[in-house]
Amino acid sequence: MRIEWETRQLALDEGVSIRALHGRHENSEGGRPTLVLLHEALGCIAMWKQVPQSLAEMTGCDVFVYERRGYGGSSPIELPRPDDYLQQEGAVWLPRVLEAAGLDRVTLVGHSDGGSIALVGAAVLGDRVRALVAMAAHIDIDALTLGGIRAAVERYRTPGSDLPERLARYHGERTDLLFRAWHETWTRPGYENFDLRPWLGDIRCPALIMQGEDDQYGLPEQVFETCRHIGAHARPLMLPDCGHIPHLEAPQATLGAITDFLEGLRLTRPAG
């Protein structure tokens, strides 16, 4: 089945413009939720690489991926970010994006920051969210989180490091600002109070909570604590030989697990 991809520029409230990529299956029956992909703290549409296409083919679902404020072709941001920026992205901006895109029923698939945003979004959007997949999401800050961020900052600042150049391929002149937005927010005094547990009890949809066993930014307890607070409709999955980016480091296992999860909920359709 052919998938047509369209780059869209969505106009939101407060003069915000959001760039998105929307993949739709040609001549397919409706009724299935659209997969909405939510990127990491230093991500963008391009950094998902082949994941949108692969998920569209494997699940038979339409796929929608967008860049949050400050990223890619979306409106810029200013620093400092508020302490509740992730909560705002999930509770305020995600619903606005879905409204502007004309998406009613969705499955949220988020990675890292995007996973945390997906948790909040699932809590506030009710039955519009039919399923949730969170990869390497944080519900609080643990010692491994801070250690991983500080190691990345040291690497970024080390002369001769390839990290700034690699990020600049995707973020261009916004690279330094986005890197600062990430590490300065997570390591500043006061942000240690970040805690998404109060949101989790409002998640009613089936949830797959995934993380690599070798994730350098979060302890495994993040997964199990998230599932405990969501309840029996949440399923934990730890991926062996995998770090912080499951969909790129272990794509076959990760995308296969997502597809199997959605098939079990009858939220996919034959793509052939």
Rank of each mutant, 00 (worst) to 15 (best):
I77D: 08
L267D: 09
L196G: 08
L146Y: 02
E173P: 03
N27P: 07
A181H: 02
G172T: 00
M1L: 09
P33R: 09
L10N: 10
E26N: 00
D140R: 11
M58Y: 12
Q53T: 10
H22T: 02
D241V: 07
V109E: 14
Y217P: 00
E165W: 12
E165T: 15
L21Q: 14
N193I: 02
R228D: 09
G218C: 10
G102F: 02
P270Y: 04
F179E: 06
V97I: 04
H22G: 08
L119T: 04
V153L: 08
D195V: 00
P80E: 04
L208V: 12
C205W: 04
R269C: 06
T158D: 10
G115V: 11
W93Q: 04
T268K: 08
T7S: 14
E249Q: 07
G272I: 15
G31L: 02
G121R: 14
G30T: 09
G31S: 06
G160D: 14
F224N: 01
W93N: 05
A143L: 13
T158W: 04
G264W: 01
G264E: 15
Q53G: 00
L10M: 07
G90Q: 02
A257Y: 06
H39N: 12
P33V: 01
W5H: 07
L265T: 01
G218K: 14
N27A: 13
E192G: 01
D176P: 05
R2W: 00
Q87I: 01
Y170Q: 13
L239Q: 02
I141A: 06
F64T: 12
I209D: 09
D260L: 14
V133W: 15
S161E: 12
D241E: 11
Q222T: 02
P164M: 07
T268Q: 05
V120A: 09
G43I: 10
T34N: 12
R155T: 12
S112P: 00
V153M: 05
L35R: 02
R150V: 08
P246I: 00
R204N: 11
G218Y: 03
M210V: 15
A91T: 00
A41V: 13
M58N: 14
G110H: 11
V124H: 10
W186L: 00
G256P: 06
H183Q: 12
A253M: 00
S112K: 01
R188V: 03
D113P: 11
L21T: 03
R169G: 10
L208H: 11
T259E: 12
R269L: 04
H229L: 14
S28W: 10
A131M: 07
Y71R: 15
D13H: 15
S54F: 07
E14S: 15
